[in-house]
């Protein structure tokens, strides 16, 4: 009785369980091999470097569960950052007024992706591949080779911690949004629509799911998240440049698929993505403090991805 329940749990959530175990293992091994790893202040401080990737992992999970992909998010970060910095330093618009506008700008750019994908039926991979170059290019047109400073009192949000904890502000935001996204995917009608669309878009359409509308909202959400990341990154670095956040999209996708989200859509949990993201962060931190070379780190993350997938695939009955 109990064993059959465990079996069922394993069959349904093998990837999540595997990454959880790997996370614990990674933590233990890192601490054992390298005592300087076990320093909470260092760990939490260093993990702020991955805040934006962590946030994008959440929205990318929804996109991939819906059977799509969004490669343009990192370009949206740069473009929104460029817009905000330009409005602030060249047009003198107060910065506090611009912060809430960042998700709006990002959302609009995401909606453009959504329009092409949902209304024009173009594959999201190609659309976002094109807008990845387009948005990055527009950031470059705005900023050229200059970098614009953000106001000094706005920089350094990552140094502010919640009283009596090591929780830096970006981490607090991330944890809050983890809960919001988990509820969104697993508890709301919108989340249902996303999953159903990912399983089979045609069937979803015939059973009354507003597929196009769902997709547009989803890409808008993805862009808005990139907008949020953009203001966090501005604060962390203190400058806006067109080439910031380049190439992070692959890290984000790696975290999502490592967490067991099916690239074909229809299956995935926020929990899996969150733990997978933490796993990558811990492994990179552990290797970093042990002085492992960058190229070995890249190889190790690849091997980790394979290990996780093979473990969950070979031990479950799923085909």
């Amino acid at each position: 009785m109990i064993s059959s329940r465990i079996r069922r749990l394993w069959n349904a959530y093998a990837p999540e369980i595997v990454v959880t175990i790997l996370l614990i293992l990674a933590f233990v091994i890192s601490g054992w091999r390298e005592p300087r790893f076990l320093d909470a202040a260092y760990l939490f401080d260093r993990s702020t470097l991955y805040t934006e990737i962590g946030l994008l992992t959440l929205s990318m999970t929804l996109i991939i569960v819906a059977g799509h992909i969004d490669l343009s998010v990192t370009s949206i970060i740069a473009f929104v950052g460029a817009i905000i910095a330009t409005l602030y330093s060249r047009y003198g618009i107060p910065f506090w007024l611009l912060i809430p506008l960042a998700p709006v700008f990002g959302g609009f750019l995401g909606a453009v992706n959504g329009y092409f994908v949902a209304r024009r039926n173009l594959p999201s991979l190609v659309v976002t591949l094109a807008t990845m170059a387009l948005y990055r290019g527009m950031a470059q047109i705005l900023l050229g080779d200059s970098s614009l400073m953000t106001p000094p009192d706005y920089t350094g949000i990552e140094r502010v911690t919640l009283p009596h904890t090591y929780l830096h502000t970006p981490l607090v935001i991330w944890i809050t949004l983890c809960l919001v996204f988990a509820a969104l995917l697993h508890r709301t009608v919108f989340g249902r629509y996303i999953t159903v669309t990912g399983v089979n878009p045609e069937a979803a359409l015939y059973s009354g799911v507003p597929v196009a509308q769902t997709l547009i909202r989803l890409f808008t959400l993805s862009g808005a998240m990139a907008g949020v990341c953009s203001v966090l990154l501005l604060s962390r670095l203190g400058v806006a440049r067109y080439d910031h956040a380049r190439g992070w999209e692959l890290d984000v996708i790696t975290a999502v698929v490592l967490g067991g989200t099916s690239i074909f859509g229809g299956r995935g949990t926020i929990y899996g993505s969150v733990v997978a993201f933490l796993l990558i962060t811990i492994v990179q931190t552990g290797m970093g403090v042990a002085g492992v070379k960058a190229e070995i780190q890249v190889t190790a993350i690849g091997l980790l991805l394979l290990l996780a997938v093979l473990l969950s695939r070979l031990t479950t009955g799923r085909k």
Binding site: D39, Y42, I175
Partner: peptide, 23 residues
Amino acid sequence: LMAFGASLTLLAGCKPDTPPASP
């Protein structure tokens, strides 16, 4: 699973009573 994950992260974030191992 969701709640477990959330509490895990929250737990991890709390400052322990004893000072952490310093470098």
